[in-house]
Design a protein around this nucleic acid. Structure first.
Length: 548
RNA sequence: GCGCCACUAGCUCAGCUGGAUAGAGCAUCAGCCUUCUAAGCUGAGGGUCACAGGUUCGAGUCCUGUGUGGCGCACCA
């Protein structure tokens, strides 16, 4: 972010001041108040103590030693307790615009992840019904993180852990079966106590009845299995369709089932048992987590012979490691936080590096309408599904709302605001900026106004133009920050700043109607803005409309 | 009882490695469309950054404690 020539000049100055190992202490930051300039060097404040000098004195002496190209720097000054402030010239920013423009359509992309493999696992909802809002948040976060890493040049696999082997599947089968029998006239056929009460179970049961008639009587193991497969398939199809409507397409659907069929569960048990990390007690198999530094041992195979969720989770992570990923990202809801240490301990016990696993925990979503919380209850089956939300407010709004808040905070989804197809809706602010730019180029074309991109930019000088360039040149670092912090919200916030800077520029500076060379220079500025917005929205999975 | 997350304007939230006067949107009020899309722009009001200590030249940001709210702490996933 700090231009190289500035960094170099400061480094030289500090060295000739007698500080040969200044490297790590050469610190720049962006002042909040633009009056202070573009960059502030805080090094004098940091080294004052060990030099036993006042920071201001150091700063003033350093400034005398700094040698900079005067055409690129307007002002260099010592302010406050000892900041060295640098204000770059308009010409510098004009040159920057040319540089950004030359990078081309894919501005923002980098190769720094080249050769590295990343696995992003997200959604991973149990195939026992429809996706709800929490899954929606998970899906949007995961998908955008995958996009971010792709833009950084990583080889990204988008993965869904298909949880089709646990107790919840038997519960699903029983729930469907009960509804099926009730449909066949046995109104009082017992429904499982903790069964899935949602309306959709009736729907599945109806389809089941259409396919099988009354041939699934009695309630046998075989018939329940049919119900399970039927319900699983139904759910999977629905889930996939919902994700597709959000423009989410995953590469790998990893079946939990396969861990059993392929003997992976057993392999993990024998590895752990070779390392003496498992033992039997009360008829169950325990994982000696206490030997790995955790508080308590946990059951991994129940006395009934079925594994608990921990075992397949560990086996699954082992598979991911064996597939050779450099980074393994798990996107999980806050309710899964407790499982993380166990799985990581398992990974470590199996000889893999747990620091390669990045767990992204997002907090819950509450739905509000006019400020009042919309109650959702799993028990009654009254849930607001992701599908309903998408059809009500549209995919772009859904994606943006789920991404515009930091992953670690609770997200309040205000339905009325989301429904608002007006200026109040924050997603339109970004899209509108993009559409406005598209419109400028359309109008120019219609009027036969040409844009000459080859001249060097050197006439932009209003604060609105310069400010926009300043923001545009920070796009790549915002992508990185967003990716490495696993926070798509950082990018969303950044794009909002871009849109604000553009709207102001648009209002203050005319493009069509300007004379050359300003005309082409402003066109260039609009073009780079359009690329940043387009690429940024693309990463967030939101459409960039040519018209609104 | 223990763990994780949060607490910033009336509401919803930003605030990156600690920096110089704490920001945005919504809401309220006042302006701006014969000129590239007013889904826009400009301005005003609105704050003890939950509370109390600590570290530091400097704390919304780091540490400790307290309070409030959310989510967990199964031989459920």
């Amino acid at each position: 972010m700090v231009p190289e020539f500035i960094e170099k000049a400061f480094e030289n100055a500090f060295i000739s001041y007698g500080l040969s190992e200044i490297g790590g202490k050469l610190v720049f930051e962006l002042p909040k108040n633009p009056e202070f300039g573009d960059f502030a060097c805080t090094t004098p404040l940091l080294i004052a103590k060990e030099m036993k000098k006042k920071p201001r004195e150091i700063a003033e002496e350093i400034v005398k030693l700094i040698d900079l190209d005067e055409s690129l720097v307007d002002k260099i000054s010592v302010d406050g307790p000892g900041f060295i402030n640098v204000k770059l010239s308009n010409l510098f920013y004009c040159k920057e615009l040319d540089r950004l423009f030359e990078i081309g359509e894919r501005y923002g992309e980098s190769r720094e992840g080249a050769g590295k493999k990343v696995n992003v696992e997200y959604v991973s909802a149990n195939p026992t019904g429809l996706l709800h809002l929490g899954h929606g948040r998970n899906a949007c976060i995961g998908d955008s993180i995958a996009n971010l890493y792709q833009w950084l040049g990583y080889d990204v696999t988008r993965e869904y852990y298909f949880n089709n082997a646990g107790k919840q599947m038997q519960n699903l089968a029983k729930s469907i079966y009960a509804r099926y029998r009730q449909l066949l006239g046995e109104e009082n056929y017992p429904f499982p106590e903790d069964g899935y009460a949602g309306e959709y179970i009736w729907e599945i049961a109806k389809l089941l009845e259409q396919s099988y008639g009354s041939s699934l009587i009695p309630e046998s193991k075989e018939n329940l299995e049919i119900c399970q497969k039927f319900g699983e398939q139904w759910s999977f199809d629905k889930i996939k369709a919902t994700l597709h409507s959000l423009n989410i397409h995953q590469d790998v659907y990893f079946n939990e089932d396969s861990l059993y069929k392929d003997g992976k569960i057993q392999e993990v048990i024998s590895i752990l048992s070779d390392k003496q990390l498992v033992y039997e007690k009360d008829g169950a198999l325990w994982f000696a987590l206490s030997k790995l530094g955790l508080a308590e041992d946990r059951v991994i195979v129940k006395s009934s012979g079925e594994p608990t969720y921990r075992l397949p989770d560990i086996a699954y992570h082992r598979e991911k490691f064996l597939r050779g990923y450099d980074i393994i990202i798990d996107v999980l809801g806050a309710d899964h936080i407790a499982t993380v240490p166990d799985v990581l301990a398992g990974v470590r016990a199996l000889g893999f590096d747990p620091s390669k696993v990045k767990v992204v925990i997002h907090q819950f979503v509450t739905l509000t309408e006019n400020g009042a919380q919309v109650k959702m209850s799993k028990r009654s089956g009254r849930v607001y599904t992701l599908d309903e939300l998408i059809s009500e407010v549209g995919a772009d709004v859904v994606r943006f709302f789920f991404l515009m808040r930091s992953v670690s905070t609770h997200l309040e989804f205000e339905l009325n605001l989301a429904r608002e197809q007006s200026e109040k809706n924050p997603v339109f602010y970004l899209q509108y900026a993009y559409a406005r730019i598209a419109s400028i180029f359309r109008t120019a074309k219609e009027r036969g106004i040409a844009f000459n991109p080859n001249n060097k930019t050197e006439h932009l000088n209003t604060p609105h133009e310069i400010n926009l360039i300043k923001i545009l040149r920070m796009f790549p670092e915002n992508i990185k920050l967003s990716a490495f912090k696993f926070e798509p919200q950082i990018l969303a916030e950044y794009l909002n700043d871009v849109a604000t800077a553009f709207h102001t520029f648009y209002h203050e500076c005319r493009i069509i109607g300007s004379n050359e060379p300003l005309l082409s220079e402003r066109f260039k500025l609009a073009k780079v803005t359009q690329r940043v917005l387009g690429n940024g929205l693309n990463i967030l999975g939101i459409n960039a409309p040519e018209q609104m």
